[in-house]
Structures are given as C-alpha cells and as structure tokens.
C-alpha cells in the first residue's frame, strides 16, 4: 500500500501535472492559431470593440461555468482527467459518460486512485474515437450528412436527453438516497429560472441550476454521511 502510494504521488502525479500544464498552455496558444492566420495571412482583424462586445456576451452566458465545471467534474475525472477534459471539451456529453462507464466496467470507485487512472484511460479513448469520427465527418461527412433525411437528423436530437437520463440513473444506483435530492434541486431550480426568479442576474441564469444542484447536493450528502458516521461511531462507543 505504501509503495503504491509512493508511485502514484511521487511519480504519476508530478508527471501528469508537468505534462498537463505544458500541453494545456500550448493548447491555449494553439487555439489562437486560426485568428492569427486570419490576421497575418489575410489581413482580417475585427475591431477590438466588437471583440469585447462579443466576449462580454459569451462570458455572461457561460463564464461562471469556467469555474463551476472544473470543480464539479474533478472528483470523477481526477487530475489527469481534468487537464484532458478541459483541453478537449465535450465534457458532459462525452468525457464524463466515458469515464463513468469505464470505472463501472473496471469495478473501481470514483474518487479513488484506481478510479482516476481508469477514468483517464477511458477519456483518452473517447478523445481518439471522437476525433477519428469528426475527421471522417469533416472530410466525407458533408456528403453523407446532407443525404440523411431531416427526420433522421431530428431523431439524433433525442440522444442527448436520453444520455443525460441514463447517466443520471447510473450514478443514482451508486447512492440511491442522494439521487432524489439532486433531482429535486435540479427540477426546482430549473422551474425557478424559467419563472424568472433569478432574472436580476446577468445573462440567462441557467448556471444557477448547476451551481445550486451541484453544491447543494454535495452539502446535503456530506451532512447525511457525517451524521451517519457519527451515529455509527456512537454505537461503537456504546458497545465498548
């Protein structure tokens, strides 16, 4: 056990942190590539005021997720998974489902070291699979996709809600008593946002649903767990 701890902490984590930081900062630079091509190669640069206007619009719509998502997905994807997930995107619809199924099939616990390693392996496979499919799609796909009927394309829209329902149930089966709390918070807050209760906040405040559901569920689940351990501890004390 101690030896395992050593390898994970003294070798694996430093490696992942070093290479994760290098590749992700390079990723930040690489993401500016197309903008640079437009500027240098074609001499096209939008007015700075237009860039700022659009940035404010997008930041008020998604900005809070820049912080919430890395925190809320961390327990399941681990350190390496965090670097990878946020370099590649498509997190809730692809990376986390892949990580969760991998952990289940391998029979390891989310949040454990083994869980982190398995999640990383699963997510890396999903990265490669996704890029392969997209690459085929972008070169051959326009022809194929344009031949698909609108009905088929509309049907694909049901895959996402179906995925979210299935993934929710997969985690619900791990902690049955927490699932109703999460769902009640999610539905309650969604209705509150739809009713305009949070309309004093900037943008369309759907982030209030994520924020409230994630941290509310963690808080209630932790309180329930501690309560139970305290009771268990008390029972053991009584026996002694």
């Amino acid at each position: 056990m101690d030896k395992n701890k050593d390898i994970f902490e003294s070798d694996y984590l430093p490696y992942v942190n070093r290479w994760g930081k290098i590749t992700n900062w390079l990723g930040v630079l690489a993401s500016f590539g197309p903008a640079l091509v437009l500027l240098v190669g074609f001499d096209i640069m939008p007015p700075v005021s237009a860039i700022i206007t659009a940035l404010i619009a997008i930041a008020s719509a998604v900005g809070i997720n820049w912080v919430i998502e890395p925190i809320s997905y961390f327990p399941i994807v681990g350190v390496a998974g965090t670097y990878m997930a946020f370099l590649t995107g498509n997190i809730s619809n692809l990376r986390v489902p892949s990580a969760a199924v991998s952990q289940k099939v391998a029979g390891v616990e989310p949040g454990s070291r083994e869980g982190a390693i398995i999640a990383t392996l699963g997510m890396a496979v999903s990265v490669i699979a996704n890029i392969t499919i997209l690459t085929l799609g972008v070169f051959a796909g326009t022809a194929i996709l344009s031949k698909l009927s609108p009905e088929v394309l509309a049907a694909f829209n049901f895959l996402l809600p179906s995925l979210f329902g299935a993934i929710f149930v997969q985690f619900a089966l791990m902690k049955l008593n927490i699932a109703p709390i999460a769902l009640a918070l999610g539905i309650g807050l969604t209705l509150a946002v739809n009713a305009g209760i949070f309309s004093f906040l900037p943008g369309r405040p759907t982030y209030m649903v994520t924020l409230g559901a994630v941290f509310g569920t963690i808080a209630i689940a932790t309180a329930l767990y501690k309560n139970k351990s305290v009771n268990k501890g008390a029972a053991i004390d009584e026996k002694n």
């Binding site: 809320s72 997905y73 961390f74 327990p75 399941i76 809730s92 986390v96 969760a100 989310p110 949040g111 869980g115 809600p161 979210f164 329902g165 993934i167 929710f168 985690f171 619900a172 791990m174 902690k175 927490i178 699932a179 709390i181 999460a182 769902l183 918070l185 999610g186 539905i187 807050l189 969604t190 649903v209 994520t210 409230g212 559901a213 994630v214 941290f215 509310g216 569920t217 963690i218 209630i220 689940a221 932790t222 767990y225």
Partner: peptide, 16 residues
C-alpha cells in the same frame, strides 16, 4: 459520497 453527489448534481441539472 462527494464524487457521486457532484455527478448527481451535474447530471440532475442537465436532465432537469
């Protein structure tokens, strides 16, 4: 418990 609660919260809000 925290890991599963975080996931249930995330996907609970996505599915809601």
């Amino acid at each position: 418990v925290i890991s599963v609660a975080a996931m249930l919260g995330s996907f609970g809000s996505l599915v809601s």
